[in-house]
């Protein structure tokens, strides 16, 4: 095979540098390798215990993708997920709300919080990093106040829903496919999605062509909040008695999923579906490491290493490619003379 043909070279570059196709290939490879590393790791029991967590992470990563698309980075993911969880558990248990309203509140509460971030960013010019860092602390305080300091249990119906399967597929996965699919379609195909992308690529250029930049940014932050909320509700339902601050371990994985999915941190073109696939990749990787006996603390380091390797690859591969091309060109010149 001629490895210098443009199509092959192009594919190689796409796989190495960025693009949603990379993570799909990587995830497929991971699942292929899994049985070799830990036999039986693709059995139905380990898969069924892994998939709900992948689903929760995929939904949260969809939210993070929306924020990164607007050139932000959302550090309030822990507070948001915790808020979604506490609203759907503590409201029925301690404040007597019907479950359905509490679940809706679990999604809308974080959406409202996202709106607050959006207002801080667009109206008051606070940079997203600081806005979300501060809001995270505020949200944890709210969670503490709502729960009155003690974790509440999820209602049996919610717990049952999160554990149940429809046609053999866990409900959590169905919800994730639905959320990620809808958000992905809206971003990729609708006029609003195109405008969101345009605002992410260049807010000033979007303003020039008459896009209401502020409104679209608010929409992005509020939708992100709703995603975290849904993730929190599902996680609360699945874990039955969620600890108060159950979102803490989701911050880095959402960022890692976005980066792995090929969305640039400089904003703009984003693939929500790729982030979702990356969530599956990360969760399966964690499962695999656990299977070979890694502790949670070593897993933290592994996650950090994966994230660093990917961002470093993004930086170093283009550098290496440029250097390699130059060397080739130099050699061509040397041969010619």
């Amino acid at each position: 095979m001629d490895i210098t043909s443009p199509s092959v070279r192009d594919l190689g570059r796409r796989l190495l540098t960025a693009g949603p196709s990379t993570i799909v290939v990587a995830t497929a490879l991971l699942f292929l390798v899994s049985p070799l590393v830990a036999s039986g790791s693709l059995g139905s029991a380990p898969l069924l215990s892994m998939l709900p967590f992948a689903a929760v992470l995929a939904i949260a990563a969809a939210g993070q993708t929306l924020v990164v698309q607007q050139r932000g980075l959302d550090l309030s993911v822990p507070g948001m997920i915790a808020l979604g969880a506490v609203l759907c558990t503590a409201l029925p248990q301690q404040h007597g709300w019907p479950l359905a309203s509490a679940v809706v509140a679990g999604a809308l509460g974080p959406a409202a919080a996202g709106l607050v971030t959006g207002v801080l960013v667009t109206r008051f010019g606070v940079i997203p990093l600081i806005a979300t860092l501060g809001l995270n602390a505020v949200l944890l305080g709210v969670v503490f106040a709502v729960a009155d300091g003690t974790p509440a249990g999820a209602a049996p119906a919610l717990n049952q829903f999160a554990l149940d399967r429809t046609l053999g597929v866990p409900n959590t996965v169905l919800v994730a496919v639905l959320v990620v699919g809808v958000v992905g379609l809206v971003i990729g195909r609708s006029t609003s999605g195109r405008r969101l992308t345009a605002v992410g690529v260049s807010p000033r250029a979007a303003e020039v062509i008459g896009v209401r930049v502020g409104r679209y940014r608010l929409l992005a932050y509020a939708s992100a909040g709703a995603c975290y909320g849904v993730a929190g509700v599902l996680l609360a339902g699945y874990t039955k008695t969620p600890p108060l601050f159950l979102g803490d371990s989701y911050l880095l994985p959402t960022v890692a999923a976005v980066v792995l999915g090929g969305t640039a941190l400089t904003g703009g073109v984003a693939s929500v579906v790729a982030s979702g696939v990356a969530a599956l990749f990360l969760t399966q990787l964690g499962q695999l490491l656990r299977a070979v006996g890694w502790s949670d603390s070593r897993q933290l380091m592994a996650q950090a290493a994966v994230l660093l390797l990917v961002v470093l690859g993004r930086v170093l591969v283009p550098m290496a490619v440029t250097a390699w091309r130059r060397r080739l060109a130099d050699r061509a010149v040397a041969l010619a003379t």
Binding site: L73, S297, L300, A304, L307, V311
Partner: peptide
Amino acid sequence: VVATLAVFMALQG
């Protein structure tokens, strides 16, 4: 942000 966030997690681990 990403670099030091990754280091954040690695140090915790």
